[in-house]
Amino acid sequence: MPIEQEQRHAYFDRDLRIEAYNLSGIVQKFPNHFHEFYVIGFVEGGKRHLWCKGKEYDLGAGDLILFSPRDNHFCAPLGGEVLDYRALNIQPEVMRAAAQEITGTAFTPVFTRNVVFQSELAQSVGEVYGAILSQAPRLQKEEAFYFLLEQVLRDYAAPLDESATPGPDQTVQALCAYMEQHFSENVTLDELLSMTSFGKSYLIRTFTRQVGVSPYRYLQTVRLERAKRFLEQGVAPIDAASMAGFSDQSHFTNFFKEFIGLTPKQYQRIFTDAPPGADGQAPQQSTRRARGGLCRGKKLMKKDWSQK
Rank of each mutant, 00 (worst) to 15 (best):
V27R: 15
V115S: 01
Q210F: 08
R226K: 15
G62H: 01
R138Q: 05
Q181M: 10
R138W: 00
R96Y: 07
A87I: 06
Y156H: 15
F183R: 00
D190P: 00
F259Q: 12
G297N: 12
L148K: 07
C75G: 08
G62V: 07
V128P: 01
I3D: 08
G126Y: 04
V213L: 07
G199A: 07
F147P: 01
E36W: 08
F74M: 09
P275E: 10
G167K: 03
Y11L: 14
M301C: 09
A144H: 11
F147Y: 15
V213E: 04
R288W: 11
A244S: 14
E44K: 14
A278H: 07
S184G: 03
N114K: 09
I204P: 00
D304H: 03
T188S: 14
R8F: 06
L189T: 12
E120A: 14
T221N: 15
R217P: 01
P92V: 04
L59D: 02
E258H: 02
R223P: 06
K55Q: 14
G104E: 09
Q135Y: 03
Q7K: 13
T196Y: 05
Q5I: 11
V125I: 12
F67W: 11
D161G: 02
Q181K: 14
F12P: 05
Q285D: 06
L133G: 03
G297T: 11
F67Y: 13
G297A: 12
G297L: 14
A240Q: 04
V43M: 10
C52Q: 09
F259Y: 13
R48Q: 10
T206M: 09
L149A: 08
K47P: 02
F147K: 10
K298M: 11
T263G: 04
A144S: 13
V116W: 02
F246Q: 02
I40T: 06
R291D: 09
E93H: 13
G60F: 02
G297F: 10
V39G: 06
F37A: 11
L50P: 00
A87T: 02
S250V: 10
R113A: 06
R269H: 13
V152T: 11
R223I: 06
F34T: 03
K47L: 02
F255H: 13
L59Q: 03
Q28Y: 07
T103S: 15
R48N: 03
P237D: 04
A99S: 10
F30N: 12
D161A: 12
I40R: 06
N114I: 00
D190L: 09
L160Q: 14
I260S: 07
R17F: 08
Q91F: 11
V211F: 09
K47V: 01
A122N: 01
E150R: 15
H182R: 13
L192P: 02
V115W: 01
G261S: 04
E120P: 10
